[in-house]
Design a binder for these strands. Structure first.
Length: 211
DNA sequence: TTGCCGATTACCT
DNA sequence: GGTAATCGGCAAC
């Protein structure tokens, strides 16, 4: 597989290509595990988007776990199986991309075995070279040109995938999820996982820092 | 078929 | 702190 293409700026080609060639693209087996474990392990990994031979990427620093059907904040709550949620019922390691608020796309990674509709929402990246602001789920998809065309695709090159570049781990902070008010006990569950970073969608509270 | 509202963002005071 | 923008999904009618 060839990652670098003629049109990719030389300065950002070689290092990532080496990492990809080294076999560090995360496969379905990574995602076919406990969703909270997957969410935590995703922090620090590189999310890579390839468009017409140009590579865009950012480092995952903020994600949330959605544990449907029990999770009242999940689209798959109560086992809802609709055209929209269908991808989450499928195999692990696929992208679940949905449209919200009339203008934003959100990217999730499907976890767990077929029939278990769980996923990890990508909320923020530390942007790579030339990549725009990624502090929020709608901004991540905008910066990486992700929309409905990628709903259901496997997280494998080309197009969209996750790479482990063996960066040193950082401290993981855990907080309630964003935007899930009105879901009872689920709105208090600590299912948002992040590194402390200026690129978070929300700053960590003093309480979260202290924990 | 209708109507509400959302796993958000940006811009206002 | 508050709210407009903007439209597909979904449940109710």
């Amino acid at each position: 597989m060839r990652i670098a293409r003629k049109s990719a700026p030389a300065g950002r080609r070689a290092p990532l290509a080496e990492r990809v060639a080294a076999g560090n693209v995360l496969g379905p087996e990574f995602f076919d595990r406990d969703t909270v474990t997957v969410a935590r392990d995703l922090l620090g990994k590189l999310l890579v988007r390839e468009i017409n031979g140009v590579l865009l990427w950012g480092r995952l620093i903020e994600v949330e776990a959605y544990l449907g059907p029990d999770d009242l904040a999940a689209h798959s709550r109560g086992g809802r199986r609709t055209p929209r949620t269908e991808v989450m019922f499928g195999a692990a390691g696929n992208a679940y991309v949905y449209f919200t608020y009339g203008m934003h796309w959100c990217l999730n990674f499907v976890t767990r075995e077929e029939g278990v509709p769980q996923a990890v929402l990508v909320r923020a990246l530390e942007p790579g070279p030339g990549v725009g602001r990624c502090a929020g789920p709608g901004l991540v998809t905008r910066a990486l040109s992700i929309d409905r065309a990628l709903n259901g695709v496997a997280l494998q090159p080309p197009e969209l995938y996750v790479v482990d570049d063996a960066e040193p781990r950082r401290r993981i902070f855990v907080t309630p999820r964003i935007g899930v008010q009105g879901t009872g006990r689920w709105e208090k569950r600590l299912l948002r996982f992040c590194y402390d970073s200026p690129h978070l969608s929300r700053k960590l509270t003093k309480a979260a820092r202290g924990g």
